[in-house]
Design a binder for these strands. Structure first.
Length: 508
RNA sequence: GGUCCCUUCGUCUAUCGGUUAGGACGAGAGAUUUUCAUUCUCUAAAGAGCGGUUCGAUUCCGCUAGGGACUACCA
């Protein structure tokens, strides 16, 4: 038999369709993707829907669309095909039944009839009650009832569960790629429920191990919240006799709340004003959760930001493309401690990516905003504005509108504006009249011709007309280089605004 | 309560026994500038505590403290 390291790398991301995909889940998927790509392996998309009561319609599609947007690609699984299917656990009932049977026959599991109510009562009555070697002989199960009575109850239609029989006194080792050798005594483990007769489905633990085995998964890369149940999973591999091909584990540090304590949760987004989901989510109860896409994040920025939360390449590089991440990613370099979710830095990543993205790709976003403001412009004009303005201090394209409205709407003039007061001083009106004359005389109204003419005059007369000119064209202290702005507005509009300013402002 | 994991600037982190403990975000200051920005320069800012091991510990070990996760017929 081959060892996991010799086998072709196969990893999986296996969410349960109970709602929108959490940003922590996105990071887990990303690490799996990077790992798979780096090793020329496969990434599998499996749906873990063994809890029929928590199924949420639309969640699966939402998850798929999120990964499409982010550029995380799967090789096989639900909606991708592959020869290890089906990849939806609810479609694998018969497979699980077979393996439950195996465990039962081997005496590694047993049938229990205790109802949820009975168990709750027990937990109330006995402090720290746990269904295990110390207590199982006091419960209603096949061990205490005997085979005949067990068969009779089943035939009678009593609901039951199958529990894993954990032998005490054993030291269980979880060999974790990030944390090293994690030891746990089997005594502290409880006899976990593996299968429920009520819906004919296994629980996570059983389905997970059976599927990972059958799908030939070589590495299980998942969140730290699974570390406590990892020993149980190891024991299951042992019980099935699959230790030789047991996957290697890597438990990732958790994403923590930016403030206070605890792991990042759904509600923190609304509370602190940043998305915790990749895409906007519309719940059935009418609630809407904001998404990174709709908030104006570029997928590359989200990927880069997430990749560095819990891992780093060991160098000072921070801006990394997906290809670079694939090349540099290393599970051994993952940190062990949880990372507070620093969304301010996430915004910085977005700013960096906006500045690196071609104007033509950014223009449609601004164009949509302009249209919502009732401004329709040829897309080339919008693109030009993006080009002039994207170096401003903005984290999102939507922040551009208040900074660039003057491109499309003639300003009003007021001495109440600090910038106007400061720059519409003695001689300003005369300067602007002279400037208007110069501009009027220009045959070609582009940046270079303006610069030549105006700079020559400014140098000869020793004047600095630019700020007063900005008052005329913008109305206040913002905007791009004056020549670029004037060229964009065109000669007519430029002169019109200058005249309007001269009419409206004091003749100083 | 029990079990496990974790602990370097406010935050994300580098350091794999010997460093002026480095970088980034954020903050502050300055320079440049045709406004706002950009860019550039600089500043403040950290090894939880206590014991060991060692010639030498941020680094290895132990204890304490703190944080986190798990403790369902949920994943």
């Amino acid at each position: 038999m081959s060892t996991p390291t010799e086998r072709k790398v196969r990893v999986r991301f296996a969410p349960s369709p109970t709602g929108p995909l959490h940003i922590g889940g996105v990071r887990t998927a990303l690490y799996n993707y990077l790992f798979a790509r780096q090793h020329g392996g496969s990434l599998i998309f499996r749906i873990e829907d063994t809890d029929s009561t928590r199924f949420v319609p639309g969640a699966e599609e939402y998850i798929l669309e999120s990964f499409r947007w982010l550029g995380i690609e799967f090789d096989e699984g639900v909606s991708f095909g592959g020869d290890h299917g089906p990849y939806r656990q609810s479609e694998r009932r018969d497979i699980y039944k077979e393996y439950v049977r195996q465990l039962l026959d081997a005496g590694r599991a047993y049938i229990a009839f205790d109802t949820p109510d009975e168990l709750n009562a027990k937990r109330e009555a006995v402090p720290n009650f746990q269904y295990d070697a110390r207590t199982r002989m006091q419960m209603r199960n096949s061990l205490t009832l005997g085979p005949d009575e067990t068969q009779r109850l089943i035939a009678e239609g009593q609901q039951y569960v199958v529990r894993f029989l954990v032998e005490p006194g054993e030291e269980v080792h979880v060999d974790d790629l990030i944390r090293g050798d994690v030891k746990v005594m089997s005594d502290i483990l409880d006899d976990k429920v593996l299968y429920k007769s009520a819906d004919q489905l296994p629980t996570y633990h059983l389905a997970n191990i059976v599927d990972d085995h059958l799908m030939e998964v070589t590495h299980v890369i998942r969140g730290e919240e699974w570390l406590p149940s990892a020993p149980l999973h190891v024991l299951l591999y042992c019980a099935f006799g699959w230790v030789d091909t047991m996957p290697r584990f890597a438990h990732l540090p958790l994403l923590l709340k930016p403030d206070g304590k605890g792991k990042l949760s759904k509600r923190d987004g609304d509370r602190l004003g940043f998305p915790v989901f990749p895409l906007e989510w519309h719940g059935q109860d009418g609630t809407v959760c904001s998404g990174y896409r709709e908030s104006g994040y570029l997928p590359e920025a989200v990927i880069n930001f997430l990749a560095l939360l819990g891992w780093n390449p060991g160098t000072d590089e921070e801006l990394l493309t997906m290809d670079q991440l694939i090349e540099k990613f290393d599970l051994a370099k993952c940190s062990k401690s949880g990372a507070k979710f620093d969304y301010v830095k996430g915004q910085w990543f977005n700013r960096e990516y906006i500045q690196r993205t071609p104007d033509a790709l950014l223009a449609p976003t601004l164009d949509a905003i302009l249209r919502s403001e009732g401004i329709a412009q040829p897309i080339e004009r919008v693109e030009a504005v993006v080009g002039m303005m994207k170096m401003k201090k903005i984290n999102f394209i939507k922040e551009l509108w208040p900074l660039c409205d003057f491109f499309f709407i003639a300003p009003t003039y007021s001495m109440d504006d600090k910038f106007v007061r400061k720059n519409w001083k003695e001689g300003a009106a005369a300067q602007m009249r002279r400037l208007a004359d110069i501009l009027t005389g220009l045959e070609t109204f582009d940046v270079e011709h303006q610069r030549q003419a105006v700079d020559a005059w400014a140098a000869a007369d020793g004047v600095k007309p630019w700020n007063a000119w900005r008052v005329c064209l913008v109305g206040t202290g913002k905007g791009p280089d004056m020549y670029e702005l004037a060229a964009f507005l065109g000669k007519d509009e430029t002169l019109r605004r200058m005249q309007a300013a001269l009419d409206a402002l004091p003749q100083v």
